[in-house]
């Protein structure tokens, strides 16, 4: 590629070395959880002296499965709400000529900038009055507002590179606006919509601070349970949860990157 561009000859060796160290720093703290989750002892000493599957069997406890079920259901509904509201907002942001749209852009992105602890305090007060604290509806509504930016950013990016002559062609061939949307526009922005929905799901699934305000003794989510089990006394079962989630996230990321590089490869061949 472009040689001679880096800071000096020494960096040819040092830079990759530094980056390998950064890579290890990124991943090692996550990987160390895996052997710990099979540890037979209650301490976190590494390497473990005895091994057991007990932590994983404890996950079958209704406390864990209940919290997990709540988190998954809330995450799926949040992803669906973000998809509907977020697609509308993305079209407005990408296509409107109105100057008010910059205000909308700020409003949609604001939940990422305003500290969650501030929103959490406010949501607690408001939802107390509306009897939404400790309910699934309350979690879904609060999480949806926080998850919207994660959906809108990739979809707006995809719409901005979208070739609109395709829509005009579809319209000139007699398709109505809805048919054009579902048969021309949507298939093209689908990858962005799907990754946006995945990000919105994760934003909700992983959300702790709002959840700490909204939880009740009878209704909590997985992050709240994990938080409780990490603050009072550290419960080694958390390591088993972490291992399962690490496996899930790694699978998703590897699959997404493989799909993307294969698609880019196909496009490169087509362009040649």
């Amino acid at each position: 590629m472009h040689d001679n561009v880096d800071a000096g000859r020494g960096s040819r060796v040092i830079l990759p070395l530094v980056c390998i160290l950064i890579g290890i720093w990124l991943v090692l703290p996550l990987a160390i959880i895996v052997p710990i989750s099979f540890s037979g002892e209650d301490s976190f000493a590494f390497p473990p002296r005895s091994w057991t599957m007990r932590r994983y069997l404890e996950l079958a406890d209704p406390v864990w499965t209940g919290a997990f079920f709540n988190s998954v259901v809330i995450g799926i509904i949040v992803a669906a709400i973000s998809a509907v509201l977020g697609t509308l907002a993305a079209f407005a942001i990408a296509r409107s000529q109105s100057r008010l749209i910059s205000f909308l852009r700020i409003l949609v992105l604001a939940p990422q900038i305003v500290p969650v602890i501030v929103v959490g305090l406010g949501v607690y007060l408001v939802f107390l009055r509306w009897h939404l604290n400790g309910t699934m509806t309350g979690f879904v509504l609060a999480h949806s507002a926080m998850a919207l930016p994660f959906f809108v950013i990739p979809v707006v990016a995809s719409l901005q590179t979208f070739d609109r002559s395709l829509e005009r062609a579809s319209a000139s061939l007699g398709a109505g606006p809805l048919a054009t949307f579902f048969q021309v526009t949507f298939p093209i922005i689908r990858p962005a919509v799907l990754s946006g929905m995945f990000l919105a799901f994760l934003a909700s699934f992983d959300e702790l601070v709002l959840a700490l305000f909204l939880q009740s003794p009878t209704f909590l989510t997985l992050p709240v349970l994990l938080y409780r089990r990490t603050t009072d006394t550290i419960d080694p079962t958390v390591a088993a949860v972490a291992t399962v989630e690490l496996l899930f996230v790694t699978t998703c990321v590897v699959a997404a990157l493989l799909l993307q590089s294969r698609r880019l490869g196909r496009e490169a061949i087509r362009n040649e």
Binding site: L30, L202, F205, D206, T230, I234, V238
Partner: peptide, 20 residues
Amino acid sequence: GAVLISMFFGILLRNFSWVV
């Protein structure tokens, strides 16, 4: 990939990793 795995692995669990 290394960055994305670290990013998507929950914030709470990453803190737990550091506690360990």
